[in-house]
Nucleic acid binder design. Structure first.
Lengths: 207, 207
DNA sequence: ACGGTTGTGTACTGAACTGTCAAAAACCTA
DNA sequence: TAGGTTTTTGACAGTTCAGTACACAACCGT
């Protein structure tokens, strides 16, 4: 028996995420968020408790999408594991993949991992942001490590390699391409980096 | 026949760099810079043309230090090239090395590449910053690629590998550890990533 | 020692920003 | 259809910020 809210929570948080992505946290004013989401000042404070609240909840939403998509993209039968890894790597260097059918963003720099960007801007002074960003990273390393193990079982990756170390390395490379993308390098360059990384994966010793 | 300036330009720019590194560009006010450098507002505007001018000149100074140190650390006889690469990689993942004897910074997150951090925060909207950051990256990739070529001549790296691709990949990994460091991961974890990367370098096919 | 020149410190201005408040609007239920 | 509840809207106060202007201090050559 009260007025229902006129906006979709996830939709608003996603718009705020885009804004934070392009102008950074400190570079975004509450009015910017207001314009990007269509919500008035008062509604923002009532629903999300202001700028910092919007950030935390937007990051939580991002984390949820990540935890939904990445494991799904990497899980599957052992046989195709290496190829799934390959595909994920190639898509990831062009922007965090969050849906199977979403094409890479037109602007690579704006497609960098949201959590990573916020962690780099605020991580030293905002432990909560740092923790959330690290959670995003953990989800990804876990999913990749599982996929590496699957590839090892199917004989496509050296069984002596440590799957966790390999997962950390691959994710570090992916995050590194966020930075290289921010430098303005071409899509072809990023693809080349991804292929080089993939080519160096330790294969089993045949003989 | 005029009053000389009472500050050392490089010293001031370095202090400003530290401030930008810890609080970001948009998170730093002119008063913050003033406090960090000891210069008054007027002097800052007269000598560096305000906040943005300080950033550009601080980045230029950073670029100069980078171009001074990195090639020196990686150049040398072909024989020790692989080991120099190894040493550089290990030091780089703990913060941009700018002098041979400087120990890694106490706070890893504050030791990330200055240029990379600024590029990620401002790169999309500030082409000048993007260009300067990319220049920093180019200096490093060139130096690393040269060292890879040296290691190939001495028979420590597969001569069939493309040294430029390898250099891009290694630098991408190093920039990736800036992000992983911002997540709050331990020094040991970063070392482990660097060692994993080094272990995967393509060795020549013996026999 | 003095004057010209340049650096330094501080106060000021107009704009922008954050967080809050109260009135109006929208909705549901009875 | 009327009342109660919650959202929405717009405006407001206090603060902070970037950039400027002006007065003062320091130095050097003569």
């Amino acid at each position: 028996m009260a007025r229902p809210r006129s906006f979709d929570r996830d939709h608003v948080l996603h718009a705020a995420e885009r804004q934070f992505r392009t102008t950074g946290y400190n570079g975004t004013s509450v009015d910017d968020i207001s314009a990007a989401t269509g919500l008035g000042r008062g509604s923002l404070y009532a629903a999300f408790d202001g700028k910092h609240g919007v950030l935390l909840q937007a990051m939580a939403g991002y984390f949820a999408r990540l935890g939904e998509f990445a494991p799904k993209a990497l899980a599957g039968p052992d046989e195709g594991a290496l190829e799934r890894l390959h595909g994920y790597l190639l898509r990831a260097v062009h922007g965090v993949p969050l849906a199977a059918d979403v094409p890479p963003a037109p602007d690579r720099a704006a497609a960098a991992c949201f959590a990573a960007k916020m962690a780099l801007e605020l991580g030293t002074s905002d432990p909560e942001v740092q923790r959330l960003a690290n959670d995003c990273f953990s989800v990804l390393t876990t999913a990749v490590a599982d996929c590496v193990r699957a590839a090892q079982r199917s004989g496509d990756i050296d069984p002596d390699a440590d799957p966790d170390d390999l997962a950390y390395l691959l994710l570090t490379i992916i995050r590194g391409t966020d930075v290289v993308g921010a430098y303005g390098h071409s899509r072809a360059r990023l693809t080349s980096i991804a292929e080089s990384a993939f080519a160096l994966l330790p294969r089993p010793h045949h003989r």
